[in-house]
């Protein structure tokens, strides 16, 4: 039987609690993984390993989180992510909500794209496809 969104959410929450040492109630659907839950760069690898294990999925590199946007001069201009890069990101990250980010697409704000909801959306899509 397919896993419900609530079940996926609860497993994702457990992954984040284990990986980041946060409490259950700190994890909400709109929590931003870096800014609200305090994840550092290495925690993302930890989170991905744990998601793969918890859901029995494979997360190819660059699928959940895009690679190298910050280092590509075509993608960032004057500290802002260019419209071309945003279009590319939207295509690569259909699981993320770009609403807030697009209002002021500073490179520093990119972390806002990676929320608990984005992970749940991603896993939901991945499970449906399999």
């Amino acid at each position: 039987m397919a896993m419900s969104r609530e079940e996926i959410y609860s497993k994702v929450q457990a992954v984040l609690v284990d990986a980041l040492g946060v409490d259950d109630d700190e994890v909400t659907p709109t929590s931003v993984i870096r800014d609200d839950l305090g994840a550092e760069s290495i925690d993302f690898l930890d989170i991905m390993f744990r998601l793969e294990k918890a859901f029995g999925i494979k997360i190819p590199r660059g699928e959940l989180l895009p690679d190298n946007v910050a280092n590509d001069p075509n993608f960032v201009k004057d500290g802002k992510v260019t419209p071309e890069a945003i279009a590319m990101l939207k295509e690569k990250m259909p699981h993320s909500d770009f609403g807030e980010f697009e209002k002021d697409p500073q490179l520093d704000h990119m972390s806002k794209l990676f929320t608990v909801n984005a992970i749940v959306n991603y896993v939901e899509g991945k499970l449906k496809a399999s």
Binding site: L45, D46, F49, E52, K53, R61
Partner: peptide, 9 residues
Amino acid sequence: EQMNDTGAS
């Protein structure tokens, strides 16, 4: 436990 091109647990 897990290993890929970015790291290992």
